[in-house]
């Protein structure tokens, strides 16, 4: 096993990216790693692009992932997954929520929302798209989209399932725990192979 795992979690403001990266860090910590994560708040809160870098392993210096080095990119929005694709390592995986959120630049006619699937094909990107919104809707709580996605990527990271579950317990309020654990399970079962 190599000693450092590099992850980028991205999406748009208000999608629960910070909670997802909190859960990932807590799980990595429980698994006995040194952990660093970095994100930028501020303007990004009003629906702008948001990203969080998570690194864990024996010893971590830089909190930032280098281009071409990400083992995993987890995106809560389709187009945003492409924004970071050049950070992927040759063996890296990209998992994205199959959801398009239109940026204001597109609404005002200053840009066009790209054909994401065509780009994925053209660039030969290792992308798995996941209907996490539909799954969350089935579970009756739209707020667990991020945890469905965490479930989906969890088997691709060197962290045992018990640590993930414990991390979720630590991070979500007790009354939402059941639905979050269910969301994790669904994501892991359906897409975690």
């Amino acid at each position: 096993m190599k000693s450092v795992t590099n992850v980028i979690i991205c999406g748009t403001g208000g999608q629960g990216i910070l909670l997802a990266s909190e859960i990932m860090c807590a799980a990595a910590l429980l698994a006995g790693n040194d952990v660093k994560k970095s994100e930028v708040h501020g303007m990004s809160q009003r629906g702008g692009s948001v990203s969080s870098h998570v690194r864990f392993g024996d010893k971590i210096n830089s909190p930032l992932v280098e281009k071409g080095c990400a083992d995993l990119i987890l995106s809560m929005e389709k187009m945003e997954s492409l924004r970071w694709s050049h950070y992927l390592a040759p063996h890296g995986k990209l998992v994205a929520c199959d959801l398009a959120i239109t940026p204001m630049t597109v609404n005002t006619g200053h840009a066009e929302y790209p054909d994401v699937n065509a780009i994925i094909e053209k660039e030969n990107l290792p992308v798995t798209l996941i209907p996490a919104v539909e799954i969350a809707e089935e579970l009756g709580n739209l707020r667990v989209v991020n945890v469905v996605l965490i479930g989906a990527v969890s088997p691709h990271l060197p962290i045992d399932e018990v640590h993930w579950k414990k991390a979720i317990e630590e991070r979500v309020p007790p009354k939402a725990l059941e639905v979050n654990l269910e969301a994790f399970r669904k994501g892991r079962e359906l897409f975690g192979n």
């Binding site: 702008g48 280098e66 050049h86 940026p103 630049t105 660039e123």
Partner: peptide
């Protein structure tokens, strides 16, 4: 960031980039 420092201190050792950067519409806050 680490890339900038790497390029400055050890030119020629920058990481290989497998997937190219994709030009996308900006997503400014609203």
């Amino acid at each position: 960031n680490p890339e900038i420092v790497r390029k400055a201190v050890h030119p020629g050792t920058t990481r290989e980039i497998t997937f190219s950067e994709i030009k996308l519409p900006a997503r400014p806050p609203a």
